[in-house]
Nucleic acid binder design. Structure first.
Lengths: 211, 211
DNA sequence: GTCTATAAACAGATAGAC
DNA sequence: GTCTATCTGTTTATAGAC
């Protein structure tokens, strides 16, 4: 965190996020990152101690940004009635899709997914503990309110993963999807189509949970 | 393809597949690959011309393997009645999940997904054209038979992606899922639980398509 | 075909001037 | 804080012995 408004510092984080995200941590070179940030290679050592420090700074940056977007509501999900819980789920899913398909957040998401795909990554631990687990738990509680099924059962956990996973997939497999759909990127009409389909799926699943 | 039963050659491909898949193409070193294959670094240049040639050989290997597993049935999907089409979809989804979660194919899937996530990868083009597009098209035709909706509409294409995407997600996000579920890897009972959930989702979606 | 030895380019880190 | 210059190690590729 620290003084995150230092210009060189943030320029480096932004450039690193892009290159780590698009090429992977090991493949990205500090030289190229410094060049993109229009500064010197030594700035990385000065500001972050080294390449690994820059990686952690990127993780904190992403975690802070996502923490804001995916803020948990203050209310207790257990208090929601069935229909309220369902519309909360719909709204959250819509936000997740808008987030994962937006070009602005492509950097964050790609970086994050690459890190999370590596079990041993030093970044994985922190982000999982601070961001993912608590939010997944919260979604499970909302799922319980929406369906009456126990929040911490294996099947409810998997249900939540399967719904969120659909949205994540459209970012991860973006090149494949976009080629098959003949889309360049995710223009607004494409995002609307994806949202519509995934909300439809969610409603179908909730409906089938018992009617 | 060529003589794929040469021992050193296949040992190199197998080792490369593992290292490319788990660490990424750029991050993996030819030295480590040769060591794992218990041969000399120069064998890579001899058999494949270089690191990039080894990458393409891995792609062909994976494509051949997946082509066998995901063989398209000879019959025309348009001939299926609604219930037959639905059970074909269920069966295919089950096979996809079994494939993506099996430890044996973890290598192939990880390698493939890494390659497909890179739009510019030289491997992407070939695999997309020879494997993915034709199978996605076939699934869309089966989806049409199962729901009556036009196979090449945007929404049906997205529906197929969303269902397949769920299965792919459980491989891509395996570290996250397994940590949250407190699973080590995907033991048989876990695979059964995932299959059960995803088939449930599929049935729910098909049911909602119009009843 | 498989090996050793080495070349040429690249990486990240660091010392020190300003 | 930002720069140049350089150190040290590692990478892929290749020449040539066997």
């Amino acid at each position: 965190m620290q003084d995150s408004d230092h210009p060189t510092r943030t320029a480096l984080i932004r450039a690193a996020l892009r290159q780590f995200g698009s090429e992977g941590f090991e493949a990205a070179s500090t030289r190229a990152i410094a060049a993109e940030a229009e500064t010197n290679i030594s700035s990385i050592a000065y500001h972050f101690g080294g390449k690994e420090g820059l990686r952690l700074a990127c993780a904190d940056f992403v975690a802070a940004r996502i923490g804001k977007v995916a803020k948990l509501g203050p209310g207790d999900p257990a208090m929601l009635d069935r229909n309220a819980a369902r519309s909360v789920l719909r709204r959250l899913l819509r936000r997740i899709v808008l987030f994962t398909t937006s070009p602005a957040s492509e950097l964050f998401v790609s970086f994050l997914l690459r890190e999370l795909a590596q079990p041993g990554s030093p970044v994985t631990e922190r982000i999982f503990a601070t961001l993912i687990e608590s939010r997944h738990r919260a979604l499970c509680r909302i799922w319980q309110a929406a369906t009456g099924r126990p929040a911490e059962s294996d099947d409810v956990r998997l249900a939540v993963f399967s719904v969120v996973g659909q949205a994540v997939y459209f970012r991860l497999a973006a090149p494949v999807v976009q080629r098959r759909m003949r889309w360049g990127g995710y223009p607004p009409f494409a995002v609307r189509a994806v949202v519509k389909r995934l909300v439809f799926n969610l409603d179908a699943i909730l409906e089938a949970e018992h009617g």
